[in-house]
Computed example of a mutant assay.
Amino acid sequence: MLGLSFLLLTGPVSSASTLRCGSDLVSLDDHTGEVQNKCGEPLSRDFIGYRVIVGYYGERSEVQIEEWAYGPRNGMYNYLRFEGNRLVKIESKRGN
């Protein structure tokens, strides 16, 4: 919850499809393991909940949703959202 509270208290948000971690680049659809190998251990990891996926034939499955925070890097915090261990959203926010 601390990570979510911090997110609400900082400045404007911008979205991107890639994030530079040193000389590496992470992109949407990367696995959690790939991101951690390239960016290191996150500042925080927040469990958000589950999302139900309904398949073509009506079969249902649940995927876990997590948000990882990195930063500050040059005054910016980066928030990465994973669904089912896949990166689905990258947001950058300037800290106060």
Rank of each mutant, 00 (worst) to 15 (best):
M76L: 15
Y77G: 05
Y50S: 10
G11Y: 03
R81I: 05
T10E: 14
E83F: 08
H31W: 03
V35A: 01
Y79V: 01
E59D: 15
E83P: 02
S61K: 12
G40L: 06
T18P: 03
R20F: 05
L7I: 06
R20Q: 15
Y56I: 11
G58W: 11
V88L: 07
R20G: 06
D29H: 12
R60M: 11
E41D: 02
F6K: 07
S5E: 12
G84W: 03
Y79R: 00
P42I: 08
Y77N: 05
S44A: 14
A16K: 12
N96H: 07
S23C: 03
Q64C: 04
E59I: 00
L43H: 04
H31G: 13
K93Y: 00
P72N: 05
V54S: 05
S17H: 09
R86Y: 06
E41I: 08
L43R: 07
L25F: 07
V13H: 08
E34C: 02
K93S: 07
E66C: 01
L2Y: 02
R45S: 10
R60V: 10
N78Q: 11
W68K: 01
L7R: 06
Q64P: 01
E62T: 09
Q64A: 12
N74W: 08
H31L: 14
Y57E: 14
C39W: 06
E91D: 14
L7N: 02
V13M: 13
V52P: 00
G55E: 09
V26M: 04
F82V: 07
V13L: 11
N96M: 12
G75D: 09
I90M: 11
Y77M: 15
D29N: 15
R45I: 13
Y79S: 00
E34M: 09
E67K: 06
I65R: 02
Y56E: 10
G75L: 14
Q64T: 13
L7P: 00
L2T: 11
L43K: 10
V35T: 02
R60F: 03
S44L: 06
K89V: 03
S23W: 13
S17T: 15
R51W: 04
L19Y: 08
I90V: 09
N78H: 15
R51T: 14
L7D: 02
